[in-house]
């Protein structure tokens, strides 16, 4: 058997439409054969490995507004699909208002890969391991999607159907992810466990966000999102609800972390066993919630 350690990309046609309308029209004309792409850091790897064989790659990087990173003090952040992660990390507005998103981006791969990798590509790829998805979930992100018939918006929380599976239909192009204004006084943290300290895909990823909320019995709302522990990026709502109703103490934080671990359905794979992952969710959720709580009180 010969092993080709340097496979080249299989044959395909590169297509670069001038407008979103043209792009959606093309994608609808060739369902199953044409795919949109941004940085290509997921799609090229999967093509080289022979997992997918699209006939057309449709470059959606230069289209109407997809390169904009815009913060509006009344409305929040709109992150164009083609904005790469290094731009997100370097943005003063992201650093000031959504440092959690910058922290999540910084945990992805390497500097040179992040020159190409995008947050929207990370989302559309729909891997449960996607490092930036958790931050977008806890900030209640909304996707802007261009389809043949116009535009629609879709809450990120309803977008994921399974590993690599989303609500997107042929012709749909995500043009941006919008994050509403962050809750007042919020603090967040992303804890990523990989096989090494930097650059590996997550074995387990825990995103936590907390903020004061006088309408709740505990006085605080905590949000959690878990990576690599279920078929989709997971929001353990039982843990969130529990902390909304209990006074925040080391004990209730431990109980919430336990509920988060119980919500997971991890798998065994080359990066770690399901049992190990579940234990790590328990430990890292407790650590993440405690760190956020320290920043809040």
């Amino acid at each position: 058997m010969t092993i080709n350690t340097h496979p080249t990309l299989p044959e395909f046609e590169y297509v670069r439409p001038e407008t979103l309308a043209e792009a959606s029209e093309f994608l609808t004309r060739y369902p199953g054969e044409a795919r949109p792409f941004l940085g290509g850091t997921d799609i090229f790897v999967r093509m080289r490995d022979g997992l997918i064989t699209p006939n057309f790659l449709v470059d959606v990087k230069k289209l109407d507004g997809t390169n904009d990173l815009r913060f509006e003090p009344q409305a929040g952040l709109t992150l164009g699909a083609a904005v790469n992660m290094n731009r997100v990390i370097a943005s003063r507005e992201v650093q000031a208002h959504y440092p959690l998103l910058a922290e999540a981006c910084r945990s992805v791969a390497s500097y040179q890969l992040r020159t190409r990798a995008t947050v929207v590509g990370n989302i559309c790829n729909a891997s449960p391991a996607g490092d930036t998805i958790g931050a977008c979930l806890v900030f209640n992100g909304v996707l802007h999607i261009h389809e043949v018939n116009g535009l629609r918006q879709e809450p990120l929380a309803e977008f994921f159907l399974g590993p690599g599976k989303t609500t997107l239909k042929p012709g749909d192009i995500v043009t941006a992810i919008h994050l509403p204004l962050p809750p007042k006084g919020c603090a967040g943290v992303y804890l990523k466990l990989g096989r090494n300290k930097l650059s590996d895909l997550s074995l387990v990823g825990v995103t936590a966000l907390g903020h004061p909320d006088p309408s709740l019995p505990s006085g605080y709302r905590f949000r959690l999102a878990l990576a690599s522990v279920a078929p989709v990026p997971l929001v353990p709502t039982q843990a969130e609800t529990y902390l909304a109703n209990q006074p925040i103490t080391p004990e209730t934080i431990r109980e919430a972390a336990h509920l988060a671990a119980e919500a997971c359905a991890p798998i065994d794979d080359l990066r770690g066993s399901a049992r190990y992952r579940k234990e790590m969710v328990r430990n890292l959720s407790a650590k993440a919630l405690s760190e956020v709580w320290e920043k809040l009180k």
């Binding site: 590169y14 940085g39 290509g40 850091t41 090229f44 290094n86 500097y111 040179q112 890969l113 020159t115 190409r116």
Partner: peptide, 10 residues
């Protein structure tokens, strides 16, 4: 001006 992995760019 920005570093990229040239194997990941068309």
């Amino acid at each position: 001006g920005e570093p990229v992995n040239s194997c990941m760019v068309l």
